[in-house]
Simulated assay, not measured.
Amino acid sequence: MGTTHLEPTAHVARRMFELLEPICLVTFLADECNEEMAALGHRGYWDGYFASRAAPLGRVPAHVVHAAFYNFADGEVARHIPRAWETIPPAASVAARERGSAASLRRILGDELVGSPGLARAADLTTKAATSAPTEGRMMYAGMRTLDVPGDPVARLWHSATMLREHRGDGHIAALLGARIGGTEAHVLSALDQGIHPAESFGRIHHLPEERLAAVMDGLRARGLIDSEGRFTDTGRATKQRIEALTDDLATPPYDALSPAELDELITELQPITAALKATDSR
């Protein structure tokens, strides 16, 4: 459904996240990005992931990437950074990520949507928002702001949606820090919010050592956030809801650059794009 005369509020930030996230997810779920990374010589998915996503920060050591990404377990980043950059320049990984992601969008959306004035307009408005927010305290977003915005509308839409995703992610980390929720703990709360039980089976953490997961769960129990069966307590659910609400609130600044009419237009133009991507689960 369309909206009318929206102002940049937390509600708008949540709506934009829902519309833009399927665009960003092709990077992680569709085949083309992985194929581009493999063609460069990256040894596997995670080499390409860390090499390309962290590259806008510069050739920083693993502990800086670990801090910026926040939710990976100790040692996970160091298995890929800086080794993934030693024979493949960071800029090459960034370019491959963009090529693969744009190729996925073109395949999934088809010629009619790809060549439509609506997509080009959505790309322009998304870029206007994505290049307008303050960078202070936004490490990943600031890194992406150093990259050139592509000229091609499909690549520009992906690039700018991803900038907004990193902006939101930086704010989400701030919200987690304020609630004293660590990276692995955040995955547990996310799993429970999605109805996954036991939370330890969640794909982002199930591979961690049992003793590490047990310590995380014990810590959440001690704080009254989960019960003896590993499910949300009322306090835990309320904590998760506060984090999400603050994340939405902190994600609003980019949309201050758009007028209410432009926000309405952007949402309208994104809706068929998002629908086509959700129909394929962004694959």
Rank of each mutant, 00 (worst) to 15 (best):
Asp152Leu: 11
Pro117Lys: 08
Ile88Ser: 02
Ile81Thr: 06
Met140His: 09
Ser116Tyr: 07
Asp124Glu: 12
Ala95Glu: 10
Ala142Tyr: 14
Ile81Ser: 01
Ser190Lys: 07
Arg156Glu: 04
Gly195Leu: 01
Ala130Phe: 06
Ala102Tyr: 07
Val60Tyr: 12
Ala73His: 15
Ala123Asp: 01
Ala122Val: 13
Gly182Lys: 10
Val149Arg: 14
Leu119Gln: 05
Met140Val: 15
Glu98Asp: 07
Tyr70Met: 02
Leu189Lys: 00
Arg180Cys: 02
Leu105Glu: 00
Ala175Glu: 00
Trp158Tyr: 15
Ser132Glu: 04
Glu112Phe: 05
Arg106Gly: 02
Ala191Arg: 01
Phe69Asn: 08
Leu147Tyr: 12
Thr146Ser: 10
Gly151Phe: 10
Asp124Gly: 05
Glu76Asn: 13
Gly195Gln: 02
Asp148Gly: 13
Trp85Val: 07
Ala62Tyr: 06
Ser104Arg: 12
Ile81Leu: 08
Gly137Phe: 15
Ala120Gln: 06
Pro117Tyr: 04
Ala142Pro: 13
Glu136His: 15
Val65Ser: 04
Gly58Leu: 13
Gln194Met: 05
Pro117Asp: 01
Ala191Gly: 02
Val64Leu: 11
Ile88Asn: 03
Ile108Val: 07
Arg99Pro: 05
Ala120Leu: 05
Glu112Val: 13
Ala67Leu: 14
Trp158Phe: 15
Ile181Asp: 00
Val149Thr: 15
Ala191Lys: 02
Gly58His: 15
Arg168Gln: 03
Ala174Phe: 12
His167Tyr: 14
His159Val: 10
Ala73Thr: 15
Ile196Tyr: 00
Arg59Val: 09
Thr184Phe: 03
Glu98Asn: 09
Val149Gln: 08
Gly171Tyr: 09
Gln194Asn: 01
Thr87Gly: 02
Ala179Pro: 04
Ala123Arg: 09
Thr126Cys: 05
Arg59Cys: 11
His63Cys: 10
Ala191Tyr: 02
Ile181Pro: 01
Ala130Tyr: 06
Ser190His: 06
Glu86Val: 11
Ala67Gly: 08
His187Asp: 00
Ser104Asn: 05
Arg180Gly: 01
Arg145Trp: 12
His63Asp: 10
Gly178Ser: 11
Pro150Ala: 08
Tyr70Glu: 02
Gly169Gln: 10
Gly183Gln: 03
Arg106Val: 09
Arg180Tyr: 02
Leu176Ile: 08
His159Gln: 11
Arg99Gly: 03
Leu189Pro: 02
Val64Ile: 14
Met140Pro: 13
Ile81Phe: 09
Trp85Gln: 10
Thr162Met: 07
Arg165Ile: 02
